[in-house]
Each structure stands twice: as C-alpha cells, then as structure tokens.
Amino acid sequence: MERMTTAAVRIENLSFTYPRQTRACFTHLSLEITEGERFGLFGPNGAGKTTLMNCMTGLLNYQQGSIRLLGNEIAHHKKSVNRLFGFVPQDFSFYQELSPAENLAFFGAWAGLNKSTIKRKTDELLDILGLADVRDRKVQEFSGGMKRRVNLAIGVIHEPRILFLDEPTVGVDVHSRHAIITYLKQLNENGTTLIYTSHQLSEAEDLCNKVALIDDGKIIAHNTLEQLMIDHEEDGLEGLFINLTGRSFRDS
C-alpha cells in the first residue's frame, strides 16, 4: 500500500524552451504520477506531450523547475536515474541489421545487466512477445508489428520501475496491439508504473487508469478517467478530448 502512494514522477514548476526559440513549451508546469499507475498523457499535436516525455527521460535539459523520478532529480544524476526507467520511443530504437536476440544482448549490457540475466530475460521476453521463432533473424526483415514488439522488449529488459511509452502501438495490426497491451498490463500488475502517450484513444481507455490532458504547454485536466468523464459529462475519452481541447486543428 505504501508503494502506491510514492510519486513515480514529480514535476514541479517546470519551464522549457527549445534553443533558439522564443516561445516556451512549458512555463511553471507541475504534475505528479503515483507509482503503480497506468498514466496516459494526451493532447493535440504540438501540445508538448513528446517534449514533456523527453524532459522526464532526460533527453532534453529543462531550464527551470524540477523533475524527480522516484525521488531522484533527473538533472542532477541523470545516468544513475536512468537505471530506474525504461523508454519505448515512437521511432524504432534499435539496430535493424541485428536480430532481436542481438539487440537485447547489446541494450541489456548498456542497461547494466550481466550476461546470464540478459540471456534469461531475452528468452523470457521473446517468448512472451511471440518473437522466439525469429530470435536470430535480422529485424529489418520484420513486419511493423514485430518491430514494435522488439522495441518494447528492449525497453523493459532491465525490469524498470517506470516505463515511458511514446505511441507504442502506432501502425500495428490488431494481434500485435493486443499482445503489446496485454503485456503492458501484466508489467503494471507486477509493479511497473506506465506513462503512456498515444492518439489511439480507445486503446488508452482500455489501458490507462489515470489521464492528463495537455494543451498549449499546460495541464488542462488530470484525474482518473472515470472522474473526468463524470466532471465533464462525457462517456468516452474522445468526447472528453474534444470537449476540453476544442475542434480546431493545432498543427496547421
């Protein structure tokens, strides 16, 4: 029970502006994600979801404020904090010339695992994600869905306590999506906090138990999905999304 009340991520007063740009992405943004949550971060294109995720994973250096992962300020000890989380970026983040097993061996070593752990986790993950039969084939020969599963396997090989997922199911078929979502729920049941962004709102409804809507660099709603729908008298995430962010295009 105590674990459920710890902040997996605590963002306080965050300000970030891209170099050589005058308009700030965020000013004084604060957000708390409790450990064990399946947290969804949603917003229109250009709202700042990916930028916020990149700040949380240390890929971008913010100018002001603080981001703590499980109590550790990411700006101060980036590399040691990196052991605590896994990241599944939207782009395929692995070497296409290598097989899934070779990719896992390499990224496992970079995550700080030893040889025997890498072997055990590789066998386990490839089996769960349905890649055991193709473990020694080059990833470049795979379908989009198989590549997404490899992308996920690499992100979780070191059993992170927090898992950041940026559009983890984009462009995949129903079977691969089902396999990925099922595995993510299983990870969460084992204690991994999921922080997820996607445009697949129906999928998000199925996966997330808490959501935040971000628009124009500000958190405009943050609560459990059920509570938000009651508050805004909507019966689905899509309606809630339109209700709060409006109907106009944001990336035009």
Binding site: G58, S80, N82, P89, D91, F92, Y95, W110, A111, G112
Partner: peptide, 11 residues
C-alpha cells in the same frame, strides 16, 4: 532511434 535509446540508458 537507437541513439535516443542509448541516451536514456545508464551507460
């Protein structure tokens, strides 16, 4: 993308 991943790992 592999580079993004490398940057988020503790190495």
């Amino acid at each position: 993308g592999s580079f993004v991943r490398l940057k988020t790992l503790p190495t």
